[in-house]
Nucleic acid binder design. Structure first.
Length: 480
DNA sequence: ATAGGGTTAG
């Protein structure tokens, strides 16, 4: 059946020469998105005559990132043996990442084997991707096992891959697990500063600064020199753990010992003080760095702007924003997001919308964080039409809605308690499943209740069918 | 994809 399916894809291409071949990734991605998915004789809207390159393919895969099933369908279409194009290893890595995000375990492994048979990998990067997916799916043991077994797939462990697996575990908050692996294997890889920095950062991420200090001490005892990254990590850890006094002492110690503190150090301190509500100290440090000849970066400005939005006033944040522009800094998407959030939070929707227009005019594309944040604020304030308007804009643009977008918008459909909103929520739920996202049980139940309470029995039955299909068959069989 | 700084909610 699978063969029949793919064959019809390729034969259909011959007759599709009437339209000129789409030339850029946006056009191709939109063509793929606008074509129907489900039928067996589905005609893939692409021509084999398109001059495929790895860059073009990767760019399309990234555009289709939040529509995993279509992304993989596109990848398989080009990978079919009747097509002449051979995927690059980076395209394989992207496809593997997408399949793993869809919990399609079987697909992940068949892609890895396919990669190997084409002698394109799998590489260290491939294993880093899969391990990261395992770890964030709550399967750290599988991530470790994958690392220990990767040589069986033609990819030998080295210090870099060891550091990567430790980092993957730490970033998914499995620090105990990382530390265990580190102690077991540090002799085998003759670990370095990076290894220790990863572990120090791990303990800091879960606010266990005493453990981080212990590891720092141990690294010195073993003759491995901490560097500025180590100290910046530790400094950030104190702020994160709410140990403001220790952070300040550590910062002073860094200056006293003449370790060449840099823009990252200062940004950490500006942000740390600000979050702690110490706005004046944050400002003082910002001024101090300029005096000391360390130029603030865009990130430093972002930190200060965010802090002013949260702990001071949006208007003062706007002043800093205009100042940075005047000095010739180019605000990035984070700058705009932080400030738009500040304005929305203050109820200044009009000014927030103006700023979004300005960012577009300046050539800074809004990303899904921009949209998600705005959609959230609109929903909270019952501006459902505005929220839906932004959602539509995402769907037709370069930035497809992600899992968060659907969750935010579906929640938003409950604030007005209207029957027609329940129907929209149901449609959104159907769409998110079609795009490969797996809604939480909570979301299913909430939508089902909403539909039942508003007399939409028929629709709720459809949702129920969908839930049993997406919950049991797909996910249980393929879950990572 | 070998480490550190800005976006996330009460």
């Amino acid at each position: 059946m699978n063969r029949l399916f793919t064959k019809s894809l390729c034969t259909s291409v011959a007759g599709a020469n009437l339209k000129p071949p789409p030339s850029d990734s946006a056009a191709i991605a939109n063509l793929i998105l606008s074509s129907p998915t489900k039928t067996l004789d589905y005609q893939f809207p692409l021509s084999t005559k398109t001059p495929w390159t790895p860059e073009l393919v990767n760019s399309i895969l990234k555009r289709l990132w939040n529509h995993g099933p279509k992304a993989l369908q596109f990848f398989h279409f080009l990978d079919h043996r009747h097509c002449e194009y051979i995927h690059s290893s980076s395209s394989f890595d992207l496809a593997i990442d997408i399949a793993a995000r869809l919990h399609q375990h079987t697909t992940v492994w068949s892609l890895i084997h396919r990669m190997r048979s084409l002698r394109l990998g799998p590489s260290h990067k491939t294993f880093a991707i899969v391990a990261e997916r395992y770890a964030s799916a709550g399967k750290p043991d599988k991530a470790v096992k994958l690392f220990l077994n990767m040589h069986e797939h033609g990819c030998f462990q080295d210090l870099a891959s060891f550091n990567t697996i430790l980092d993957v575990l730490c970033k998914s908050k499995r620090v105990e697990k990382a530390y265990e692996l580190f102690r077991d294997l540090r002799g085998r890889f003759s670990v370095d500063t990076v290894t220790y920095n990863v572990i120090v950062n791990g303990w800091c991420l879960i606010k266990r600064t005493p453990k981080a200090l212990e590891v720092l001490k141990e690294m010195v005892e073993r003759g491995i020199n901490p560097n500025l990254t180590t100290y910046n990590t530790m400094l950030k850890g104190f702020f994160r753990a709410g140990q403001i006094r220790q952070a300040w002492e550590f910062f002073s110690e860094m200056k006293k010992r003449k370790c060449e503190i840099d823009v990252v150090t200062y940004t950490t301190v500006v942000h740390g003080f600000g979050v702690a509500g110490e706005v004046n100290r944050a400002r003082n440090v910002f001024d101090e760095m300029i005096r000391e000849g360390v130029l603030p970066s865009v990130a430093t400005h972002n930190a200060l702007i965010q802090v002013l939005c949260k702990k001071d006033s949006v208007d003062n944040a706007v002043v800093v924003f205009e100042e940075m522009v005047r000095k010739g800094y180019e605000p990035n998407v984070t700058t705009y997001n932080v400030l738009i959030r500040g304005l929305f939070h203050a109820g200044e929707f009009g000014r927030g919308e103006e700023l979004m227009q300005r960012m577009v005019n300046e050539g800074c594309e809004p990303n899904f964080q921009t949209y998600n944040m705005m959609i959230r604020y609109y929903s909270e304030c019952c501006e459902i039409e505005k929220a839906l308007g932004l959602f539509e804009k995402m769907g037709s643009g370069d930035c497809l809605p992600n899992l968060d977008t659907y969750n935010i918008l579906i929640s938003g459909m409950f604030v007005r308690k209207r029957s027609e909103d329940m129907v929209v929520a149901g449609k959104l739920l159907l769409e998110m499943v079609e795009r490969g996202f797996i809604p939480r049980k909570f979301t299913f139940n909430r939508v089902l209740n909403g539909l039942l309470l508003t007399g939409n029995q028929a629709f709720s039955k459809e949702i129920l069918r969908l839930q049993s299909k997406s919950g049991s068959q797909l996910t249980r069989k393929f879950r990572l």
